[in-house]
Computed example of a mutant assay.
Amino acid sequence: MSRQISSLLAIAAVCVTLAPAPAFAQAPKKAAPVDCEQVKCLALTFDDGPGKYAGTLLDTLKKYDAKATFFLEGQYVKSRPAFVKRMVAEGHEVGNHSYSHPDFTKSEPGTIRNEIKKTQDAVKKAAGVEPKLLRPPYGLADLQTADVATEFGMPMILWTAGSEDWASKNVDAIKKKTMEVAQPNGIILMHDWVKQTVDAMPALIKSLQKKGYHLVTVSDIVKGQNLQPGDIFPVPAGWEK
């Protein structure tokens, strides 16, 4: 072997020895699931969206590490798919709230099926997932609605209390009402098309977290309920299945 080749080999060996070990990117750690039997949980739910203020709302939820459930209307999923994709990417839950918000209790079964299916398809196209939960428009359901929900394998989700944001459209009133009705394992009705709701969220989330609430998805809240397709929760007074 020539002296020149020997020198080059020696230099190469030194370079290999001194080269830093390759850095392997670590996958981000997933947050541990919240056990709502052990800690105070609350689900904030937003109907009729995604509304035009959804991006600001998502920024706030991300800042305070809070999760929410969005019951979406297919017509707005179609016009604002980027918000839906972001909701899913950031760990929020998306549910089905019909395509155009008719009263299911005054609709034919075929209409109900079409409303649910079109929204399922729109969400799947926007975010690659299909909602697992149905919130009937106006929170109105009957046995016929339950039968159609069963066909889609979906339980129906109502709420334990509302923020009344659609009526007041006042930041202080929305915060006050939500704090009054908040309870462990509660499901709060809100709307992301109400600007005052989105404006209230930073202070509201901080107040709820200060009281020890973990803001989680509806599925976290109902995990122990063993809901079956067509079931409704919370069960309305007089509901018989």
Rank of each mutant, 00 (worst) to 15 (best):
H191P: 01
I187W: 02
G55I: 01
M1W: 12
G212V: 04
K206N: 07
Q228C: 01
V171F: 07
F46V: 08
L44K: 03
L215K: 00
I205V: 15
A149Y: 02
E180Q: 14
V148H: 04
T160A: 07
V218F: 02
L9A: 13
W166D: 11
K40D: 15
M156T: 06
L140Q: 13
L227K: 03
E130I: 12
V198A: 11
G74Y: 09
D103E: 13
F46I: 00
L8A: 15
A21C: 10
L133G: 06
T178I: 11
P234Q: 05
H92C: 04
R113S: 10
G74A: 10
G51E: 01
S107N: 10
T60E: 12
V181K: 00
K30N: 10
P229N: 01
C15A: 15
K63H: 15
A146F: 03
F233T: 08
G212T: 05
T56A: 14
A182V: 08
K118E: 15
A182H: 07
Y53C: 01
F70R: 04
P109A: 09
E240W: 05
P102N: 11
Y76Q: 10
A66R: 02
P22A: 13
L189W: 00
I116Y: 06
S2P: 13
E130L: 07
G49P: 05
V14W: 05
D48T: 05
G238K: 09
Y64R: 13
V34F: 06
A146I: 02
E151R: 00
A10K: 10
I187H: 00
L133E: 03
P236R: 06
N170P: 02
V34D: 07
A126I: 10
G91N: 00
E108S: 14
Y76P: 06
G51Q: 06
V39F: 10
G95F: 04
P20I: 11
A13F: 11
G128E: 11
K206L: 13
A173G: 01
K195G: 08
G139P: 08
K30A: 15
D199I: 13
C41G: 07
W166N: 08
T56P: 03
D220V: 11
S219R: 05
G139M: 02
Y138A: 09
A19N: 12
A82S: 13
Q196M: 07
S207N: 13
I221D: 06
I188C: 01
K132Y: 05
G51C: 10
K29G: 12
K78P: 04
L8W: 12
Y53D: 08
I232W: 00
V88C: 06
P234D: 06
D165H: 10
T111F: 07
A25R: 06
I221P: 02
I205L: 09
K132I: 08
F152S: 05
A182N: 01
K117C: 07
G49F: 05
L8T: 14
